[in-house]
Design a protein around this nucleic acid. Structure first.
Lengths: 204, 204
DNA sequence: CTTGTAGTTTACTAAATAGTAAACAATTGA
DNA sequence: TCAATTGTTTACTATTTAGTAAACTACAAG
């Protein structure tokens, strides 16, 4: 009972957009409220602080978008190597769309915010850590499946997954800094050759 | 003629320290002045803005520390593969020292600041871009030398260098976010196996 | 030793920002 | 319909912050 509202969702969306495009530190509560079309009083009705909003926004993004995307890209119905190739291809494609929309390469909000705030805000750090860990597990699982069917060389799957993920996030970061998606272009084949897949080529 | 001063250097050092430990956005001019023991009037005597200070601090750090370090780690007198192995080992060692000093993994200031500010501040973005590009060239040159003496597989050296650098920065970012240096532990061997070096092992 | 220059200090303004309190509005179930 | 509850709005305070102006200090060269 009582009044209904979508202000909370509007705030979550606006926060993620602004923080992704700009950065956590530079985005003010006023700016988030303005973008969301919500008054500051309402902001404080739903959230305790910018930090709490950021944590909620990252988690909401995973629940509402991220999880489905990763589930489908890493579906067990796809051959393991294809999952990985498709994932990197998808990363390139979606960054391209974002670049066209925003005029800039944006990279990964989770990693960017995490790196920015990790020494300052423990609750954000832990949430980012958690989400990134979930993502690494998709790699790990695909690698193990690939090792089982012989398409990926043997060796510690967890290590390989972390390595691939570091390569991925490092490339996204570079792409953001250089404002150039070329760094992501070659990732599908680079990733496969790192994994010791059959078809090896240039960047390995 | 006139009064002499080291305030400019004090400001450059304080700025790099604070921004590295915290982040660009969260560090105020007042905080930098306080850490440097310099009054704000003097700050504005030497610098136009926080942005200008950051650019100067990054460049000064390269000139006063970075360049010598990279020159010596990538000395032509060292076998190419050893240069790369030593570099990653050195990265681990120095991050360990920083972690003990600050109680946290700090990662790479250049990359962190670059990623944080790149969509907001073009002058910082360009300076970071320039410094990172210089670093990539050390990798590239070592890779080419390794290809010449047969210790590294053939293929586009520039691509391989970018790949290695992305892996490096991605690992530093992860280490900062997780506040855990284990990500850097295996980098020397991972890097070598990516390059197709003789001794291949776990993570490749 | 004095004069011009390089650097310092203080005290200030204006703006941005986080955060709050309390009156107000809408909705729903009893 | 009315009362309890949920959400909204406004107007406010206190603080932090960037940035400035002008008086002041130290030094080095002539």
């Amino acid at each position: 009972m009582g009044r209904t509202s979508n202000a909370k969702e509007l705030l979550l969306d606006a926060a993620l957009d602004l923080i992704w495009e700009r950065s956590y530190g530079v985005v003010t509560i006023d700016a988030i409220c303005e973008k969301a079309g919500v008054k500051k009083g309402s902001f404080y009705y739903f959230f305790e602080s910018k930090s709490a909003l950021a944590v909620a926004a990252l988690e909401a993004d995973w629940n509402d978008c991220g999880k489905q995307k990763w589930d489908s890209l890493f579906s067990a119905s796809i051959p393991p190597l294809d999952r990985i190739r498709n994932f990197f291809q998808h990363a390139y494609d979606s960054q391209l769309v974002l670049q066209k929309e925003h005029g800039q390469v944006l990279g990964c909000p989770c990693f960017s915010v995490g790196s920015e705030t990790s020494t300052q805000d423990e609750t954000i750090r832990l949430k980012v850590q958690e989400i990134l860990q979930r993502q690494i597990r998709y790699f790990e699982s695909a690698i193990r499946d690939g090792q089982a069917d012989g398409s990926i060389a043997t060796g510690d799957a967890a290590s390989k997954a972390k390595c691939l993920f570091a390569l991925f996030e490092g490339s996204l970061g570079q792409a953001r800094i250089q404002n150039d998606l070329e760094f992501l272009r070659v990732l599908p084949e680079t990733a496969l050759s790192i994994l010791g897949a059959a078809r090896t080529s240039s960047a390995a």
